[in-house]
């Protein structure tokens, strides 16, 4: 069975929010749209976003790490949001594992959002139905798009390519390899939700320099031996 998902590489994410707004623009006029904004030009502007980029600080000065952390629906393999839905509006697709909401069935009871530990569902406050990341279902399944473009909007936009997309059940896919080789992990594993989306941790490159590295025979200073002798006394003058 196919399980499509995103794998997010925290090692290169610079927190640019491209994935946030590219998601919004694709989806607002797409299958899952519109993505409504409230008080768009007033105080407390708020609106529907399927994807947020957050920032965390780890440690204290000067050993601080700043981590940018994008988060959208993780398309859990065992999604707690689905069975609780009383109408069947929330469902997980059989063919590719994407978790979706059918707005025509949704009664806006919000129960699914309570049942998602990740805080990725958003009620559209105007239309009063629950919305969430669709993994750009209307792009990835659109056979009229060229193959290379059959990817989520956020993945195509991401300038650092921090968002990998593919089938996490296919052991040879780019995402599965990345998870395997880079220590990809899931969020809040304690709930057994088995998120399909994974995160790749930070990695550090260090450089080691030994004393020998600094003392090499080809040191250019040896070519600048510019000692000037002015006839001062030496052992040759005073010993025998």
């Amino acid at each position: 069975m196919t399980q499509l998902a995103l794998v997010i590489d925290l090692n290169v994410c610079v927190g640019c929010h491209a994935c946030v707004t590219s998601c919004k623009q694709w989806n607002t006029s797409g299958w899952a749209g519109p993505m409504v904004d409230e008080n768009a030009y007033g105080a407390d502007p708020t609106g529907t976003f399927f994807n947020r980029v957050q920032t965390y600080e780890i440690g204290s000065f000067p050993s601080t790490e700043t981590v940018h952390f994008p988060k959208s629906c993780l398309h859990c393999e065992d999604p707690p949001c689905v069975p609780v839905c009383p109408t069947g509006a929330s469902y997980k697709r059989e063919d590719n594992g994407v978790v979706l909401v059918d707005y025509d069935k949704c009664i806006g009871c919000k129960y699914c959002s309570w049942a998602c530990p990740y805080g990725v569902r958003e009620l559209d406050e105007q239309q009063k139905v629950m919305k969430k990341c669709t993994l750009c279902i209307d792009r990835i399944t659109d056979q009229t798009l060229p193959e290379a473009e059959r990817q989520p909007a956020c993945v195509l936009a991401c300038p650092t390519n921090a968002r990998l997309y593919g089938d996490v059940h296919d052991p040879d896919s780019e995402v599965s390899i990345a998870i395997r080789e880079r220590g990809g992990y899931a969020l809040m594993p304690e709930w057994g939700t088995k998120p399909a989306n994974h995160y790749l941790p930070r990695q550090k490159n260090h450089m080691h320099i030994s004393e020998e590295d600094l003392q090499r025979s080809d040191n250019p200073l040896t070519k600048e031996d510019i000692t000037v002798y002015s006839g001062e006394e030496t052992l040759d003058d005073v010993s025998w």
């Binding site: 640019c16 491209a18 590219s22 623009q25 607002t28 195509l156 936009a157 300038p159 390519n161």
Partner: peptide, 23 residues
């Protein structure tokens, strides 16, 4: 929808947060 032009030498198809908000 605005998307990055994959054939462009500068951005090679990617687009930033601002570029994606041109609408």
């Amino acid at each position: 929808y605005i998307e990055g032009n994959p054939n462009h030498p500068l951005n090679k198809g990617v687009l930033c947060a601002k570029g994606s908000s041109g609408i």
